[in-house]
């Protein structure tokens, strides 16, 4: 199945008189020659793994394989419950705590769902889990939201890239945040157009974000970029729901993001030869881990 534009996603939703998520369920069932219920059941399995990864990261935080991160998700989760006044609000911060938790589980060789990649695996689960709690949604409703995410992810993969080695961090955490924002809009009963606006506004804000992992590990700054992605997704979804629109259409934003990714030097595309990776501290940590 090839879905090459946000325009197409919106059109599919209109033809189906449904959300983009439900239209994607239909598309996937047709492509796979299976029932829509089977598609949702399979996606729900992925959702269960996502929820387990959140629970693991919050309940039993561990030091990462490379030793650079661990326990930050739990720290934020506890802070949310400490009675302190949260500047950004508890919904955003709890989504952030979950996103951090999943990114940490990934870094301990725990089980996660690549979404769209392992490095950006915390953003979608973090945002969707918080909205599920907030709106008391069923797992099946979240499975539909994951299909919204998949639709937007496909478009980004088609028009740009979802690989840090090809397009920098904007292609991984940026794409994940755009996917999560679009799904968040649909979970709050926004229109397909508003979902597209949320996607566009996220990607505009991460345009050019580089992939510069310290020591080449999926730890620093990856976990905190998952925090960025989750918070950005929540804020941009709210902007879209408030009726704010992107001056540049989503498909043009995605194409631009792809072009920016390709023009990034190699040193800023996952090779650990630029950015934070070559700061004095980054180099020192590299030396310490790999000798």
């Amino acid at each position: 199945m090839v879905i090459g534009s946000v325009e197409t996603l919106i059109q599919l939703a209109h033809e189906n008189h449904s959300s983009i998520g439900l239209a994607m369920v239909k598309q996937e069932a047709a492509a796979k020659q299976c029932t829509e219920a089977e598609v949702l059941q399979q996606m729900n399995k992925n959702w269960q793994v996502m929820k387990e990864s959140i629970a693991t990261g919050i309940k039993t935080p561990q030091r990462s394989k490379g030793g650079l991160i661990g326990g930050e998700g739990r720290k934020v989760y506890d802070y949310c419950r400490s009675g302190e006044k949260l500047l950004s609000g508890s919904n955003v911060m709890e989504a952030v705590s979950y996103a951090l938790a999943v990114a940490e589980v990934n870094a301990t060789m725990g089980r996660i769902v690549a979404c769209p990649t392992a490095g950006s695996c915390g953003i979608v689960p973090g945002v969707l889990k918080k909205i599920q709690e907030l709106e008391q949604l069923t797992d099946e409703q979240i499975a539909v939201a994951l299909m919204t995410c998949a639709g937007f992810g496909m478009v980004i993969a088609y028009r740009a890239s979802v690989s840090g080695a090809v397009g920098g961090c904007q292609a991984e955490c940026g794409a994940a945040a755009a996917m999560a924002a679009a799904a968040a809009v649909e979970l709050r009963n926004g229109t397909p157009e508003q979902a597209g606006q949320a996607c566009a506004m996220v990607l505009k804000n991460v345009m050019g974000l580089v992939c510069d992992p310290v020591a080449g590990l999926v730890e620093v700054p990856c976990a905190k970029r998952n925090a960025l992605g989750a918070s950005l997704a929540m804020v941009m979804a709210d902007l879209a729901l408030a009726g704010v629109t992107s001056v540049i259409p989503a498909d043009e934003v995605i194409t631009a993001m792809g072009a920016v990714g390709r023009s990034l030097p190699d040193s800023l595309r996952e090779t650990a030869r630029g950015g934070l990776a070559v700061t004095p501290t980054g180099l020192k940590l590299h030396q310490k881990i790999f000798g």
């Binding site: 996606m43 399995k45 992925n46 793994v49 589980v105 990934n106 870094a107 301990t108 060789m109 725990g110 089980r111 996660i112 769902v113 690549a114 979404c115 769209p116 392992a118 695996c121 979608v124 994951l146 995410c149 998949a150 992810g153 496909m154 993969a157 979802v162 996917m179 999926v218």
Partner: peptide, 8 residues
């Protein structure tokens, strides 16, 4: 896009 399930 949403997958695979894998260990990190």
């Amino acid at each position: 896009i949403i997958g695979p399930v894998m260990v990190g």
